[in-house]
Design a protein around this nucleic acid. Structure first.
Length: 467
RNA sequence: GGCGGGGUAGCCAAGUGGUAAGGCCGGGCUCUGCAAAAGCCCUAUGCGACGGUUCGAUUCCGUCCCUCGCCUCCA
C-alpha cells in the first residue's frame, strides 16, 4: 500500500486514486516561469515529481500529468522590455532550454505543458474570473484590477495552516494595493499598466493580464478536470499560490480540487539558501560546463528524501559519480556473466520488496537505495565465489532494468570513438610485448581523453569517466 | 511575533522503546607487471544540550541551544 504525506493534513495517508478502477492518476505540477534558465533548486522539485510519477507507474498506475509554463508575469515582461523584444520572443529560448534540461536530467515529460498565454487558457481564465465575480467571490477594484475576496472563502489558509489574523506584513506587499478590500485579497486579473507595454488581453474588465494563481486553476481543471489526485510543487508554493488555487477553483467548481498535496523542501547550496548574491547559484548548464553529467546531477538531487532540505555540494556530486560508477561496474559484471543466457531466474523477492516498499512509504529513496546497494554487495560477493549462474545474472539484470524505470541511472550511451579504439589496440600490442612503460603512457593518455582502462582476467576494458 | 522543516560518524543520509541501514571519503588485505576495478575487514558505547518517564531512550515527554524556511505572485 502506498502512503504519501499530505501537506493539507500534515500526515501520511494511504493513496487511493479518484478513478473508480483505481488505475488512472491525475497529477498537476507547477512548472517554471520562463524568464531565465531554471536552476538546480527548480530541478529538485521536478525530479521529485519525476520520482513520484515513475514509482506510481512502477506500481501499475497510469499517470496523466500536466505541467504548466508561466510565460507571462512581472519578470518575463521586464525581461522582454529590457531586451526590446516581444514577450513570446523573449520566453521561447527559455522554454526550449527547459525541455533540453528535462531531457538531460532524464525527467519524463508531462503529457502536456500548457503555457499561460495560449488563447484557450486565457479564455478559460476569463470565464472563471467572470464566474467568481458573479458568485460574489471576486470584485473589480478602483484600479480596474479584479481581486479574489478571501473573506468569501472561510477555508482560505487551511493548506498553509495560517491564521490570517496573525499575518504580519513582510514588506513585500506593494504599497499601492490599498484598493483591495482586504490585504490578503489577491489579483485574478491585473489591469493593464504602461509598464506592461504590448502585453495585454481584452477582457470584460478592460485590457490586462491574468494573475499568476488563476493560470494554474484554469489549466489544471481545463486539462485534467475539476478534481485532481495529486498536486505538487515546492514548499514555497504552499502559500499563497496553492492556497489561492484552492480558493478560486473550489469556488468555481464546488468540488474538492485536490486530494493530495505534496511539496518538496528547498535545496541548499553549501549550507545556505541558493542566491546569486552568495555566489552559490547554479543552473544545470553551469554544472554541465564544469564537467558534471545529467545523471550525476539527477542522482544527487534525487538521493535525499523530498521533504527534507537537501544540501547540494560538489563533494556530494563527486560522491554521486563514484556511486554511479560502482553501479555501472556491477551491471557490466552481471552482463559479462550472463552472456547470452536467456532463461531468467527470478531475482530475490525480498530485495525487490525492499526497494519498492521503501518508495511506497512516502518515496523513501534513501532506504530504497540502501536496499539496492545491499543487493549490489551481495551479488558481487556471490560472483567473487563463482556462486552466481548466468541465468541468475540475467535475472538480476532484468530486475535492475525494472528498478531503473524508476531511477533512470543507466550510464550515458557513450560510443567508443575510433581514436580511443586505436589507442587501446596500440596499448594491447605493447602489453603483449611486455612494454610496460609504453603501456602505462598509453593508459595515462586514455585517461586524459576521459577513458578509464582496466586490465581484467577477461581482457582490457574501458569506461568513460564522464558519466 | 505566528507557523513549519532540520540537528545521527570526516561528508551525505535511513531508522527504531531494547542497544545504530546505505553511499562517499580514509586505512588494511586478496587479485594484478604496475595500476584500476571488484570483494572482504576496519572506521559513531554514539544519534544538538540538559532534565524526566521506563528494567531499558537516539527513539516518548519537558525545557533550552543551533540552523534553514514560509508569513501575499521564489521549486
Amino acid at each position: 500500500m502506498l502512503h504519501f504525506h499530505n501537506t493539507l493534513t500534515r500526515s501520511a495517508e494511504p493513496f487511493v486514486p479518484l478513478d473508480p478502477e483505481g488505475k488512472k492518476v491525475k497529477v498537476y505540477t507547477c512548472g517554471p516561469t520562463v524568464y531565465n534558465h531554471a536552476h538546480i533548486g527548480n530541478f529538485r522539485a521536478y525530479l521529485f515529481e519525476d520520482l513520484l510519477q515513475r514509482h506510481l507507474e512502477y506500481r501499475g498506475f497510469q499517470v496523466e500529468r500536466v505541467m504548466n509554463l508561466t510565460d507571462v508575469d512581472d519578470k518575463t515582461i521586464r525581461g522582454a522590455r529590457e531586451k526590446g523584444v516581444p514577450l513570446a520572443e523573449f520566453t521561447q529560448p527559455f522554454k526550449n532550454a527547459f525541455f533540453e534540461d528535462l531531457t538531460t536530467l532524464r525527467i519524463k515529460p508531462a503529457d502536456a505543458f500548457p503555457a499561460a498565454t495560449e488563447p484557450l487558457h486565457i479564455a478559460r481564465m476569463i470565464a472563471m474570473i467572470a464566474q467568481l465575480i458573479a458568485t460574489g467571490h471576486a470584485y473589480q477594484a478602483d484600479d480596474q484590477s479584479v481581486y479574489f475576496r478571501i473573506a468569501s472563502f472561510p477555508r482560505y489558509g487551511k493548506l498553509a495552516h495560517l491564521n490570517l489574523d496573525e499575518l504580519r506584513p513582510s514588506g513585500r506587499v506593494s504599497s499601492d494595493e490599498y484598493e483591495k478590500e482586504s490585504i490578503g485579497d489577491f489579483a485574478l486579473w491585473k489591469a493593464h499598466d504602461v509598464a506592461d507595454g504590448e502585453v495585454k488581453w481584452d477582457s470584460p474588465w478592460g485590457p490586462g493580464r491574468p494573475g499568476w494563481h488563476i493560470e494554474c486553476s484554469a489549466m489544471a481543471t481545463g486539462m485534467l478536470g475539476d478534481r485532481l489526485d495529486i498536486h505538487c510543487g515546492g514548499v514555497d508554493n504552499i502559500f499563497p499560490h496553492h492556497e489561492a488555487e484552492i480558493a478560486q477553483t473550489e469556488c468555481c467548481t464546488g468540488e474538492k480540487f485536490v486530494n493530495l498535496w505534496m511539496h518538496c523542501a528547498h535545496l541548499m547550496v553549501d549550507g545556505r539558501k541558493m542566491a546569486k548574491s552568495f555566489g552559490n547559484f547554479y543552473t544545470l548548464r553551469d554544472l554541465l560546463d564544469k564537467g558534471w553529467t545529467g545523471r550525476e546531477v539527477r542522482y544527487v538531487l534525487l538521493s535525499a528524501h523530498y521533504r527534507l532540505p537537501l544540501n547540494f555540494t560538489f563533494e556530494g556530486l563527486a560522491g554521486a559519480r563514484s556511486a554511479l560508477q560502482r553501479l555501472d561496474a556491477w551491471q557490466q559484471r552481471l552482463a559479462d556473466l550472463a552472456g547470452t543466457a536467456q532463461a531468467s531466474t527470478p531475482p530475490p523477492a525480498a530485495a525487490e520488496d525492499k526497494f519498492a516498499a521503501a518508495l511506497d512509504d512516502d518515496l523513501n529513496i534513501s532506504a530504497a537505495l540502501g536496499a539496492l546497494f545491499d543487493l549490489v554487495r551481495e551479488t558481487n560477493r556471490a560472483m567473487d565465489r563463482n556462486e552466481l549462474s548466468p541465468k541468475q545474472a540475467r535475472g538480476l539484470l532484468d530486475y535492475w532494468a525494472r528498478l531503473n524505470t524508476v531511477l533512470r541511472l543507466e550510464p550515458e550511451a557513450a560510443a567508443i570513438p575510433p581514436e580511443i579504439t586505436a589507442l587501446l589496440a596500440e596499448r594491447t600490442a605493447a602489453r603483449t610485448a611486455k612494454d610496460w612503460a609504453k603501456s602505462d603512457i598509453l593508459r595515462e593518455a586514455l585517461l586524459q581523453h576521459g577513458w578509464l582502462v582496466k586490465d581484467t582476467k577477461e581482457g582490457t576494458k574501458v569506461s568513460c569517466t564522464k558519466g
